[in-house]
Amino acid sequence: MKSLLMTDLLTQKTFRAIAPNFFIFLMSLVPFLFLPLTHLFLPNLGIGALYFWAVYCPEKISLWVIFGSGLLQDGLFGTPLGLFGCLNLLFWILTIAHRKYLFKRSFLMGWFGFFILYSVTFILKECVIWTLQRPLYSESMMLEGITSLLSYPFVAIVCLYVHQKSS
């Protein structure tokens, strides 16, 4: 009886530790599935999940996960390896640094904070990619930025659900 209880507690503890990290990987992978309209653009859902955990629960996320999700995005997007890892880590650092202005604020303020921080990272990413690969301007570049910003409320709702289940 005691051993069953211990096993159950261990499983719950493992789930609480793994769930937020696994969710970030899943959000990075979702845009590459055959979902409606993803043949037109690819929103960066992983960055929304990173922002949520950075503001509300940064201790649950491992740096390996941030780096690994960046590597996954590099492998799938076709960008130089390490690029998205750098950008995700930079985004994480920026969000942690400004966490005191975002924590315990209204949802709209949080969304505005995501807009500011994501815009900085997005512009930096496009500058680096333009320098390295020189892509031609396309509507999908702006669509990616806009849809990533607009998708934050949906990502936040799912992250909140995972957060409640894992705490």
């Binding site: 590459f32 055959f34 396309s138 999908s140 990616e144």
Partner: peptide, 13 residues
């Protein structure tokens, strides 16, 4: 198994 239509590369896996 996957399709990528990003501003950086158009490819299929």
């Amino acid at each position: 198994i996957g399709a990528v239509k990003s501003p950086y590369q158009h490819n299929v896996l």
